[in-house]
């Protein structure tokens, strides 16, 4: 394979990996944008989404679209429940308490799933035909395009909701100043709940698509993608929706290039080095505006 061909193939690999990070990062960034919480349980919500989709397909015998919807609904409700039980009582507590709670929720979801569905990895049935397109030596497969497409469409829908709808206006108001928004008649609790529902159902979509794409799911599958999505969200500017998508894609491409041209063992080191560099030199991320943080 020519060097240029190899480079192109690595770009394709990177974009397909990156679109998964982007999909998870969307939920991350949205929740952060509204209540300034880094929801470390987000990766595990994504895992639960994958399992719900898996059981919908294998037990309820539904096809991929209903499975996605079922998974979005169930996982969205789970997200809401987590918010009500674990985060809401801490809304006025110091931010560190709620962050630690998020870590606790993350472990809880991981090990509860391990108990209920066993740690053995499950294999997804092949519900989407995997067509491979060959362009010269390059290989692109249908599922990669599908994941990228879904990510971009969901980003567009979310941006529309946040920027153009009444609910979005309430979200932005709550994000800007929860108490003032409440005084203006915004039901902040409802808005926050809704944010968790949307964020979690996005994670569910990512979980099911990853299950279909990689063909294997297990209770700890959310840890690494969760962390990578966090890096992606920070890279793009945490709280900014298009930033999460661009951050995810950039991270995926960087990982593929590092694996392909330097060494696959440096890949994760490179990803987290990016996190450190962004935090050092441009904490607001690629798309972020420098604003004074209100403390």
């Amino acid at each position: 394979m020519e060097l240029s061909q190899q480079l192109l193939q690595q770009l394709i690999n990177g974009i397909s990996l990156g679109s998964i990070y982007a999909l998870i990062a969307l939920g991350y960034t949205m929740i952060y944008g509204i209540i300034k919480l880094i929801n470390f349980a987000h990766g595990d919500i994504y895992m639960v989404g994958a399992y719900v989709g898996f059981f919908a397909i294998t037990q309820a015998q539904v096809s991929i679209l209903p499975a996605l919807l079922i998974s979005m609904v169930v996982t969205g409700l789970l997200g809401m429940l987590v918010e009500k039980l674990a985060y809401k009582p801490l809304r006025h507590a110091p931010r560190i308490s709620i962050l630690i709670t998020a870590i606790g929720v993350s472990f809880f979801l991981e090990y509860a799933s391990m108990y209920f569905v066993s740690p053995t990895p499950r294999t997804f049935p092949e519900v989407i035909d995997n067509v491979a397109f060959h362009v010269g030596d390059l290989v692109i497969n249908g599922q990669q395009l599908l994941i990228l497409g879904i990510t971009v469409v969901l980003m567009a829908i979310l941006t529309y909701i946040v920027q153009k709808t009444k609910l979005g206006k309430a979200m932005r108001a709550a994000s800007f100043d929860t108490e003032t928004a409440q005084l203006m008649g915004v039901n902040a609790d409802q808005v926050i709940s809704f944010t968790f529902v949307i964020g979690s159902s996005l994670a569910a979509v990512a979980g099911v698509l990853v299950g279909v794409y990689y063909n294997s799911i297990d209770p700890l599958m959310g840890i690494m993608p969760g962390l990578k999505a966090f890096v992606a969200a920070v890279l793009g500017g945490i709280g900014i929706l298009p930033g999460a998508v661009v951050g995810g894609l950039v991270l995926g491409v960087i990982e593929a290039l590092v694996s392909g041209f330097i060494s696959s063992t440096f890949r994760d080191a490179a990803a987290f080095a990016i996190l450190i560099l962004v935090l050092l030199f441009k904490p607001s991320g690629l798309f972020g505006k420098n604003t004074n943080e209100k403390v």
């Binding site: 190899q6 294997s216 599958m221």
Partner: peptide, 20 residues
């Protein structure tokens, strides 16, 4: 010689290199 880590999901970057 290439390497991966336990729990990795995506091997395509290293495999593209291996293919060459």
């Amino acid at each position: 010689q290439e390497a991966f880590l336990q729990k990795d999901q995506d091997f395509k970057a290293a495999l593209t290199k291996i293919k060459t």
